[in-house]
Amino acid sequence: MKITKLQLKYFCLIVIVLNLVSAILGVLYYALSTTTLFWLWNLQGIIMFISWILNSLLVFINDRILMKSDNMGKKINLLSYGFLAFIIFAMFFFTIHSLTTSFIDPPMIITYVLAFLALIGIAIFGILLAYLDIRNLENRGVLKVE
């Protein structure tokens, strides 16, 4: 299946918006640290979940349409590998954070920092990948789109 420039552009814009909203609400989640806004955390979580899926999908799509012989193509490809490695580490950080807050008293600040960095890092990777795709849309040497 071929992807058009317009489709990729809209897809990337959605990725950028969802990652931004997810990161902002995620920061709010850690800053407020309360269960009274459960409806908001539900919304935040759904947006975050979708954004992480779309980030992963973008990496998969990029793998199909990137010209890896091009310099910029190579960089985006490397960034894609970086994202995949980072999201795996991020999940470990979240796991450690969940486990320590459940069993260790007082809670360890370092795990909050790691979870926070994981949240922000995934969003930054997603936004960067989507931004680079949009910037190179017209560059046929980088992306094979119609």
């Binding site: 995620g26 955390w41 539900n42 979580g45 975050m48 979240f94 807050t101 809670p107």
Partner: peptide
């Protein structure tokens, strides 16, 4: 005082606010 829904996606991933 109570949780307003039985489940929040955000908490499931980001950890429980103690």
């Amino acid at each position: 005082y109570f949780l307003t829904s039985p489940f929040a996606f955000g908490a499931a991933f980001l950890g429980w606010p103690l």
